[in-house]
Amino acid sequence: MRVPSVLADADVVARRNITKIKRVPDLLVFTTLQPIMFVLLFSYVFGGAIGSALGSGSGAGEAYREFLMAGIFAQTVIFGATITGSALAEDVKKGIIDRFRSLPMAPSAVLAGRTLSDVVNNVIVLVVMSLTGLAVGWRIRSGFVDAVIGYVVLLAFAYAVSWIMAWVGMLVRSPEVFNNASFIVIFPLTFIAITFVPLDTLPAPLQRFAEWNPVSSVTQAAREQFGNVIPGTPEPAAWPLQNPVLYTLLWAVVILAVFIPLANLQYRRSTSR
């Protein structure tokens, strides 16, 4: 298969998916409303309590909002990545994948197009979240390049997670089952991490988990790149959190290496019933 043809086919599939974002804006609205709700609830409900734990004394709420945004970004793009799985499960169920598979197109283009369009979706969501953050007092305190790297790391990690979701979505073949299953896995993963609370407030076993959890590293990467590390926070002891960008990208590469082949294999096997 010639590479240009794969790209052309993937482009056609991605455009189809993006058309859906335009035609059914509810989907985008709800994927962004939930994190906006989290920003508001967390900052104003837990802000006082957790903010004091951050040790910044006065302005605890402000400090927490600064701390929180990177965690919300990480959680949001990971949830955004689940769209890949539910959309593919839906396509399998409705016979659209059968139609694609009966066409002389590049087989890998369907998944490539899907995951690419979900990056577009995540970019839109990140813009909305950043604006929300700005509204509650969050600021990027680093340079332009650092900030861009922060966003790229978030998107790259989410892109890798998309491929896990692609595989699972085609395996379960039911959008409802997929949504419930992914929620049960992703919720603990995004909470047992340094997304919403400082590491030292967790019980010891959870601290070990959180230190190696890539959700922590992607959060830490964003926090550092945006210049949101609260002054006086102790230097992290674990290697992944000392090298969050590297550790996160390593995860992304490993996930892609495993799940791109798995998802493509599943695509070739998948049938609607």
Partner: peptide
């Protein structure tokens, strides 16, 4: 595809037939 128009559905398939 329910969200595409009839025209878009057929055009997409035509493009995937190259």
């Amino acid at each position: 595809d329910e969200y595409l128009t009839g025209f878009e559905n057929l055009q997409m398939i035509g493009r995937l037939y190259h």
